[in-house]
Design a protein around this nucleic acid. Structure first.
Length: 271
DNA sequence: AAGGCGCACAACCGCGCAGCT
DNA sequence: GAGCTGCGCGGTTGTGCGCCT
């Protein structure tokens, strides 16, 4: 298949956008939206290709784009998510409201890589565990699902001990505020190692809050497992038994799919 | 003051994918 | 199923700016 060029090169402007061009684009999108980027520049009277317009809008002109320096918390979040997701900038951006993938990519290449290098010495132990792994996928499977604000900072934070039977699970924590609850898991190993006791530890102490905070996973006679409802909301369960009952394997593939598929990246509740 | 250099960021490019015909 | 189009993503490049010599 022959690919048609994204835009006609002849007569179309390239390079930095002028304030006048920005204004034209803003006015047009405000009035008519951006249903068709390819047709937009022609209709708006811009000598740009649709791709260029889309990029300018999404990375710079959108009203919800947050300008200015990244906070330390945002940088930490990027580092943690990058450890988990790799160079999937759009997936990382989805967890940072107001930040674009392009911006995050730039920050990563200009600031954070250096910062990580500087911190390298202090994190030798952690890196050693990862470096020792021969399988790169294993490293990607390391679930390190951190929210912008650390769970320990939130009211109601309570650590949950990892199961004795699975020494590879480093930390399991739950956190909650008035209305939301989420679970943070850091692991290097197959979840099938985890025994039933682990999941009962994750349960909220007060089961009456279960319905709103968690959904039940698993079906009799299998043990019931509990996941954040916000995570399940974007995940297609293998078996739907109705009324919030789902069945799925608690192995690493499940978690890998759940947490790394861009489209299905779960919306974690704000802590 | 001016030239060189490196950094930061905006913008471009090429590819893959999804949806439509 | 093939062909085509549009969009989004990640990698790369271009450019402006500040710092240093």
């Amino acid at each position: 298949m022959v690919r048609t060029p994204c835009c006609e090169k002849m007569g179309l402007k390239k390079g930095p956008w002028t304030p006048a061009e920005d204004q034209i684009l803003i006015n047009y999108v405000k009035l008519y939206g951006h249903g068709n980027w390819r047709a937009l520049p022609k209709q708006a009277g811009l000598l740009r290709c649709g791709k260029s317009c889309r990029l300018r809008w999404t990375n710079y002109l959108r009203p919800d784009v947050k300008r200015g320096n990244f906070t330390r918390e945002e940088e930490d979040t990027i580092i943690n998510l990058h450890e988990m997701l790799g160079n999937r900038w759009s997936a990382i951006a989805a967890r940072l409201p107001g930040r674009t993938d392009n911006e995050i990519k730039n920050v990563w290449h200009t600031h954070l890589k250096k910062r990580l290098k500087q911190n390298h010495g202090s994190n030798d132990n952690k890196r050693q565990a990862i470096d020792s792994s021969k399988d790169i996928k294993k490293e990607q499977e390391t679930v390190n699902f951190l929210s912008p604000v650390t769970a320990a900072d939130s009211p109601g934070y309570r650590p949950v001990s990892p199961p004795e039977s699975s020494s590879e699970v480093s930390t399991i924590t739950t956190s909650e505020n008035n209305s939301n609850m989420c679970m943070k898991i850091e692991t290097h190993e197959d979840f099938s190692e985890i025994d039933e006791n682990f999941w009962s530890e994750v349960l909220p102490a007060d089961n009456s809050s279960l319905a709103s905070d968690f959904q039940v996973v698993g079906s009799d006679p299998q043990p019931h497992h509990y996941f954040p409802s916000s995570a399940l909301a974007t995940f297609e369960p293998a078996n739907d038994h109705g009324s919030n009952l789902y069945s799925c394997d608690t192995n690493m593939d499940f978690w890998y799919n759940l947490f790394t598929r861009t489209a299905d990246l779960p919306e974690l509740p704000e802590i």
